[in-house]
């Protein structure tokens, strides 16, 4: 197995990969924008972002703009490192073929 073991289980889902890809090139991104970018449902985004927050890969900020609640996401340093490592493994796997 070797190299396969090192693939981060957190990034197995496309949605999580998408969230990380968006956050690595942006600062704070809010819920509606993220939802539109990934074209997924509210619940889907909420559950995947919660999982990423649990692994401390992203930060979730909840605030009120006027009376409306607003949720935004930002990548953490740990998330940045983990995602870059994941990209490196993916690359190695493809090149090793």
């Amino acid at each position: 197995m070797g190299i396969i073991d090192k693939l981060n289980k957190n990034f197995e889902s496309r949605v999580r990969l998408g969230i990380m890809s968006v956050l690595i090139v942006n600062d704070w991104v809010d819920f509606t924008e993220m939802k539109a970018l990934l074209s997924i449902t509210d619940g889907n985004l909420a559950s995947h972002s919660a999982a990423l927050e649990k692994s401390e890969y992203i930060e979730i900020k909840k605030e009120f703009v006027g009376k409306k609640p607003k949720t935004s996401y930002r990548i953490t340093n740990l998330g940045r490192v983990a995602f870059k490592e994941h990209l490196n493994y993916l690359e190695k796997l493809i090149n090793a073929k």
């Binding site: 496309r14 890809s21 090139v25 942006n26 991104v29 993916l90 796997l93 073929k97």
Partner: peptide
């Protein structure tokens, strides 16, 4: 398997482009 990884990379790339 590597097909999936290749698609993953494409997906990552396109999401980075689209969002920035």
């Amino acid at each position: 398997m590597s097909q999936k990884h290749q698609e993953d990379l494409l997906h990552i790339r396109s999401m980075m482009e689209r969002s920035s």
